[in-house]
Computed example of a mutant assay.
Amino acid sequence: MARPLRSAGPPAKAEGSLAPGARVEGVHVEVAVTLPVTNRYTYSVPPALVGRAVIGSRVLVRFGQKKVTGVVVRERVEAPSGITPVDVSEVLDDTPALPVDLVELCLWVADYYEAPLGEVMRAALPAGSGESARNVVALTEAGRAAANGIGGALPSKQRMLLAKLVGKAVPMSAFKAAEKPVITALVTDGLVETGELRDKVRVRLKRERIVKLAVPITEAREAAGRSPKRYAVVEALAAVKAGEWLAVEELANRVAGSKPLLRALEKDGLVALGDREMPLDAAQTGESLASEVQPPP
C-alpha cells in the first residue's frame, strides 16, 4: 500500500494551536513526554494550573510508575473516549521553554522523519532541563529510633522493612506487593513517610583544553627568546586578563601552529595547561534545531 505523500515543509499551525504566549483555556492538553515514545498523551489541567499551562512549557506528568518531564503541544483537546486523564502535576516554567513555532517544527520533524516525538522534543529543550519524580518511602525520626531498637517491640516484617530504609529513601516500586500493607501500617504508626523524590537530569558536558601564562609577562617574553612562534604564543596569552585561562583551540585560531609548542612551553615552566567543562551553547538547545533542520527539496 502506497504511503501518503508528506509535506515538503513544516505544516501550517493545526487547529487548536496557539499564538506565542497564549494561555490554555481548555480542560485537557496534549503533552509530549521526553522519552523515546511516538505518541502524545492527554492530561487534565487542574484549575490552579490553567493560567500557567502554556504551549511550549515544560510540565511534570505521571507516566507509568514515575513522573517525567513533558512539553505541552496542544490545548483544547477532547479526552479519549472511556479514559479519564490524570492531572498535570506541575508546570515547571514561568515562561515557555520552547516558542510555539519551535513546538510546531518538532511535531513536523517527528512526523516527516518518523522519529519518536519525545526524543525530538528532548533534543529541542536546553540540555539538563529534564526532571522526573518518584514516589519514595523514608524513615521518620520515630522510625529511625525504632530501627535502632529504641521503643516497643515490632513484628518481624515491620522490623525487616525498617532495616531496608536505614540511611536512604527507597522507591515505592522497589517493594513487593506483599510489603505494601506493611508500609501502610508503618505510615499509620508514624514510623515511615511517603513522598516524591525529584531527579534532575545529569548532563555530561564536553571538556576543552586550556592554557595560561605561568610566569610574569616580562619573564615569559625573555624566555621566549628569538623564536617567532614561541614569542607569538606568549603575546597571545599576555593579551588575556591576568590569571585567566584561554582555550587551546582559541589560541590555535590566533596563532597558527601553536598547539605543538605548548608541551615544550609547559616543560620550560612558561605556561600551565589544564581542562574545563565547556559552557552550554546553542548547539545543545532547540536553537540549533530551528536553524539546522531544513525541509528536503
Rank of each mutant, 00 (worst) to 15 (best):
L262R: 04
D93N: 02
A283G: 09
G274C: 08
D87H: 05
S44D: 10
E193A: 01
P47T: 09
V120W: 08
E196Y: 05
G118F: 05
A53R: 09
R134V: 03
K13F: 06
T140S: 12
A2S: 06
T42C: 14
P295F: 15
A178P: 15
E235M: 12
P279D: 06
T140H: 14
R58T: 10
A138D: 15
E78D: 03
L98T: 02
V72A: 01
A256H: 11
G286W: 13
V103Y: 14
T184A: 15
S288R: 11
K67Q: 13
I55E: 13
G243N: 09
K168A: 00
A256Q: 11
E277R: 02
L5R: 13
I183H: 11
K200A: 00
L117A: 00
A48T: 08
A97M: 12
K241I: 08
V233T: 06
V45C: 09
E196M: 04
G243L: 06
K164S: 01
G130R: 09
E235L: 11
V77L: 04
A153I: 09
D268S: 00
G152T: 12
A252H: 08
R3D: 06
Y43E: 06
L270D: 02
D94T: 01
R207W: 11
A214F: 07
V68G: 09
E30A: 00
A239D: 15
E193L: 02
E78Q: 03
M1N: 04
I150A: 11
V255W: 09
Y112T: 04
T84Y: 10
A53M: 11
V120I: 03
R221Y: 03
L105K: 11
I83C: 04
D189L: 06
V203D: 04
L154R: 03
A124G: 06
S7E: 12
R40V: 05
R62P: 13
V71T: 11
V203W: 11
V33N: 02
L237C: 07
G26E: 03
Y112H: 10
S81I: 06
V136I: 14
T285Y: 10
A153C: 10
D93G: 01
L125M: 07
E292A: 06
G225V: 04
M1F: 08
V170S: 04
G16A: 01
D189P: 15
G286Y: 10
D93Q: 02
V59M: 13
R226K: 07
V255D: 01
T188Y: 15
V88E: 02
V91A: 00
R254D: 02
P85F: 01
K13I: 01
S7R: 14
V71Y: 13
V166P: 13
E222I: 01
A178T: 07
G9C: 12
L186M: 02
T194M: 08
W108E: 08
L107H: 07
L237T: 07
K164F: 05
G143C: 12
G274T: 05
P36Y: 09
A146D: 12
I210G: 04
L165S: 01
